[in-house]
Amino acid sequence: MSSNNNLDTLYRQVIMDHYKNPRNKGVLEEGSLTVNMNNPTCGDRIQLTMKVEDGIVTDTKFEGEGCSISMSSASMMTQAIKGKKIDDAIKLSKIFSDMMLGKDYDDDIDLGDIEALQGVSKFPARIKCATLAWKAMEKGLQEEGQ
């Protein structure tokens, strides 16, 4: 049982590290795709900017405010999609969504730090916090792809 507690502790540390030291924080200049989303139930708010060239997310940044879960998830998401094709980024978002809903997901893909958020699935009220940035990314990339 103790190894499970160690994992929970490690995951909490990863989440807090992304919250306190967010990766890709800021706003990309003009010519980038901008998506604003908020979660009215808890006040989380995000502005996601992405630069897409030749179907690849070449850069992405986020600004926002909210709980540690929403902000660390945004940080992890921006790291995860940078350099990915639109389809692969959206696929990653679907995998993340399945993970949050406690469904089976394709674990052949290395999720890196994102795996630290899997415990959120046990707290239904927090799932929207964790998925906010991902939904913003998906919305922006789906509009871009049309």
Rank of each mutant, 00 (worst) to 15 (best):
G31A: 06
I127T: 03
K85E: 14
I127G: 04
G31S: 09
S93L: 02
K91M: 15
N4V: 13
A133H: 02
E63Y: 10
D113G: 05
A130D: 06
S75I: 07
S68G: 12
L111N: 01
A133I: 01
Y105W: 14
C67E: 01
K85F: 12
A133D: 04
I90D: 05
G55E: 12
E63R: 09
V57I: 12
E63F: 11
I86W: 01
N24M: 09
L117C: 06
D17V: 08
K82T: 15
V57M: 07
M37L: 13
T9I: 11
D8R: 14
S75T: 08
D54E: 13
I114P: 00
K103L: 07
R23M: 11
G119T: 10
M77Q: 06
L92R: 05
S75F: 07
P124L: 14
D106I: 07
I95W: 02
K135M: 13
D108P: 05
D87H: 12
A133F: 11
I46D: 01
D113Y: 06
D59W: 12
D88N: 13
N6T: 13
T58V: 13
S73V: 06
L10I: 11
R23E: 10
T41K: 15
E115C: 06
K61S: 06
L132A: 04
R126Q: 07
L33H: 06
M76E: 00
S93W: 01
D54F: 10
D87Q: 12
G55F: 08
L28F: 08
K25R: 13
